[in-house]
């Protein structure tokens, strides 16, 4: 498992849930200790030179893995969309080959379940009213489609309600949320209104980054609505 830097630091519960689900399905999870960050923040903010060494680090940590499962669509999108080009830029032929070999084995968590394992029902129980937020990177860059919703529909006890404007960005966008705080807040307000309209108890997604941003506003507004990563719902028993 590649947990990613912010999940490791801020959302350990998500990592534990991934381990729980995968082990319940009979898989062995390994956690290479030297892993840190995929480089997305640097790359997307324009600090390309700072991102390059993180590619090399990722390859060193995960070479030889049967599959690399990542509970963050935006980090997987970063790797898929930019690692080949980054390897090109570093100009190391061996690294390029390794990236080409490793990338097809990298999966976002829900994608690993639906596409690699071909599963929908992972034996979860979660008796709550939930709405699903499709993060932009999962939706557009990874093409997750309705995979996450299919996993959720198979959860026992769940009451899954659809949100209006599913394809509309929540306004997080990494450093965008700070650099363009006003615009980001206005986008977020549209999203939280849509969530409130679903009357859900919790909002879920494949990205804790969007959820941290959404939860921040839901908490500020004292709505009582929680956010929870998809893995944590699928780990429910």
């Amino acid at each position: 498992m590649f947990i990613t830097c912010y999940n490791d630091t801020l959302f350990p519960a998500t990592g534990k849930a991934v381990v729980r689900v995968l082990e319940r399905l009979g898989h062995t999870v390994e956690f290479p200790a030297g892993q840190t960050c995929c480089g997305q923040m640097h790359w997307n903010t324009g600090y390309q030179a700072e991102a390059l060494p993180l590619l090399t680090r990722f390859v060193e940590q995960f070479r030889g893995a049967e599959a690399v499962v990542v509970p963050s669509s935006s980090c997987v999108a970063m790797m898929r969309d930019h690692y080949p080009k980054m390897a090109e830029e570093i100009g190391d032929v061996k690294l390029k080959a390794e990236v080409a070999e490793l990338l097809p084995k990298v999966f976002e968590f829900s994608e690993f379940l639906t596409k690699r394992l071909g599963l929908e029902d992972v034996g979860a129980y979660y008796p709550h009213r939930v709405t699903y937020h499709a993060s932009c990177h999962g939706l557009r860059n990874l093409g997750l489609g309705d995979g996450p919703q299919r996993l959720l529909r198979a959860v026992r006890g769940i009451d899954l309600v659809e949100i209006a404007g599913l394809e509309q960005c929540c306004g997080f966008g990494g450093t965008f949320a700070v650099k363009n705080a006003e615009v980001s807040s206005a986008m977020l307000a549209e999203k939280t209104n849509a969530i409130l309209n679903t009357k859900a108890e919790a909002c879920t997604a494949c990205d804790n980054s969007c959820l941290m941003h959404i939860h921040g506003a839901l908490h500020r507004q004292r709505t009582g609505i929680q956010t929870v990563h998809l893995a944590e719902i699928l780990a429910g028993e």
């Binding site: 630091t9 959302f11 534990k16 949320a177 980001s184 921040g216 506003a217 500020r220």
Partner: peptide, 24 residues
């Protein structure tokens, strides 16, 4: 610079234990 975040959002405090600490 980070004040933009807390204009309309709260930020949840860091958990007591990181994932890697739990794993170890």
């Amino acid at each position: 610079l980070l004040g933009g975040w807390t204009q309309v959002r709260d930020l949840q405090a860091m958990p007591e234990e990181t994932f890697r600490e739990w794993w170890e």
